[in-house]
Lab assay of single mutants.
Amino acid sequence: KELVLALYDYQEKSPREVTMKKGDILTLLNSTNKDWWKVEVADRQGFVPAAYVKKL
């Protein structure tokens, strides 16, 4: 499975999103959308801005 690194803190703004902290390592589930990537963090799945994460 592919992992991404959170480059910035992100606070979810809708139930479809997830909160992450800078430095978090997240499991990447889907990166087909260039703006929003689906990730899993702490047993929750949701979207984060693609610009806020980097593939490892």
Rank of each mutant, 00 (worst) to 15 (best):
L5H: 05
V53F: 06
L3V: 08
G46K: 02
L5S: 05
N30L: 10
L5V: 14
R44Y: 05
W37C: 04
R44I: 07
W36H: 03
K1Q: 12
D24M: 14
V18S: 02
G23V: 02
T27W: 13
K22H: 06
Q11D: 14
K34I: 11
T19S: 15
L28G: 01
N30M: 09
L3T: 09
K55D: 05
A42G: 15
P49V: 02
T32E: 15
A51R: 15
D9R: 03
T32H: 12
A42L: 14
N33H: 13
E17C: 07
K54F: 12
N33F: 08
P49W: 04
I25M: 06
A6E: 01
E40M: 11
M20N: 00
L3D: 04
E17I: 04
I25N: 03
N33C: 10
E2C: 13
E12W: 06
K54A: 13
V41R: 15
E2F: 10
M20E: 01
W36A: 02
L7H: 04
Q11W: 13
T19E: 04
T19V: 03
L28S: 01
L29F: 04
V39G: 00
E2I: 14
L56W: 09
K38V: 14
G46N: 01
A6V: 11
A42S: 12
Y52N: 05
Q45I: 15
Q45E: 13
E40T: 08
V4L: 11
K55L: 14
G46R: 01
L29V: 13
K22R: 11
R16A: 13
E2N: 14
L26C: 09
L56N: 04
K38Q: 13
V4I: 08
T19M: 05
Y52G: 06
L5C: 09
D35N: 14
K21G: 06
E40F: 06
L26M: 13
G46D: 00
V39F: 02
R16F: 13
D35T: 14
A50K: 06
Y8H: 13
V4A: 10
G23S: 03
R16N: 14
T32S: 15
V53Y: 01
D24N: 07
F47H: 06
A50D: 02
R44M: 06
A42K: 13
D43E: 13
A42N: 14
D9F: 05
D43F: 09
Q45G: 07
E40H: 07
T19A: 07
G46A: 03
M20T: 03
W37A: 04
Y8P: 00
T19L: 03
L3R: 10
Q11L: 13
A51T: 13
K38R: 11
A50Y: 02
P15V: 10
R16Q: 14
A51N: 13
K34Q: 12
W36G: 01
I25G: 01
L5N: 02
T19Q: 05
E17L: 06
S31L: 05
D9M: 03
E12D: 05
V53L: 15
E12I: 06
P49M: 03
Y52R: 06
W37Y: 07
K1H: 12
L3C: 11
L29K: 05
E17W: 03
V48K: 01
P15W: 10
Y10A: 00
G46I: 05
V48C: 03
L28V: 06
E17N: 05
E17V: 05
Q45W: 08
K34P: 12
D24G: 04
T32W: 09
L29P: 00
K34E: 11
K38H: 11
S31A: 14
K13D: 07
K22D: 02
K21F: 12
Y10V: 01
K13S: 10
V39K: 00
F47P: 00
T32G: 11
R16C: 14
V39E: 00
A50C: 07
D43M: 09
V18E: 01
Y8W: 11
V4D: 00
E2G: 10
M20F: 11
G23K: 02
L26E: 00
L56C: 10
L26V: 07
Y52S: 12
D24F: 05
T27I: 15
S31Q: 11
S14W: 07
N30I: 08
R16P: 06
G23M: 03
S14E: 09
Q45K: 11
V18G: 02
Y52L: 13
K22C: 07
K1L: 14
K21V: 10
L5G: 03
G46T: 02
V4E: 00
Y8T: 08
P49L: 04
R44N: 06
V4M: 04
V48P: 00
K38Y: 15
G23R: 02
K38F: 15
T32V: 10
T32K: 12
V48W: 01
Y10C: 02
K55V: 12
N33P: 04
L3W: 14
Y10F: 08
L5W: 07
P15Q: 10
P15Y: 10
D35A: 11
K13N: 10
E17A: 06
A50H: 04
V39L: 05
K21P: 01
K13M: 13
L5P: 00
T19F: 04
L26R: 01
R44F: 05
K21Q: 11
P49N: 03
S31F: 08
E2S: 12
K34G: 09
Q11G: 08
N30F: 07
Y10M: 00
E12K: 13
K34T: 11
V4P: 00
L7A: 03
P15L: 09
D24Y: 05
P15C: 10
S14F: 06
F47Y: 15
Y8E: 11
A50N: 03
S31D: 15
A51H: 13
W36K: 03
T27Y: 13
L29Y: 04
I25D: 00
N33R: 11
L3N: 06
L28R: 00
A50S: 15
M20D: 02
K22V: 08
A42F: 15
P49C: 04
V39S: 00
S31K: 07
W37R: 01
R44W: 04
T32C: 12
I25L: 09
M20C: 06
N33Y: 09
V48L: 03
G23Q: 03
W37K: 01
L29T: 05
D35V: 14
R44C: 05
Q45T: 15
F47A: 03
Q11C: 10
D35Q: 13
V53W: 00
P49T: 02
L3F: 15
Q45M: 11
I25K: 05
Y10N: 00
L29I: 15
E17H: 07
A6D: 00
D24Q: 14
E2R: 11
S14M: 07
M20V: 09
M20Y: 01
K38G: 05
T27S: 11
N33W: 07
D9A: 07
V48G: 01
V4T: 02
L56P: 03
D35R: 15
P49R: 04
V4S: 02
K34Y: 09
E40Q: 15
Q11F: 15
K55S: 08
M20K: 01
L28Y: 02
K13A: 10
E40C: 11
D9P: 06
P15M: 10
L56Y: 09
W36R: 03
G23D: 06
L29S: 04
T19G: 10
V53K: 00
L28T: 00
S31V: 07
D9E: 05
I25A: 03
A42T: 09
K1F: 14
V39P: 00
P49K: 04
V18A: 05
Y8K: 15
A51E: 10
K34A: 13
V4K: 00
E40R: 09
E12P: 14
P15S: 12
K34C: 10
L7F: 03
Q45F: 08
V53R: 00
V41W: 07
R16W: 15
K54V: 15
T19N: 08
L26Y: 12
Q45V: 15
V48E: 00
L29G: 01
W36M: 06
M20Q: 02
V53E: 02
G23E: 02
K13C: 10
W36L: 03
Q11Y: 15
N30H: 08
V18M: 12
P15R: 11
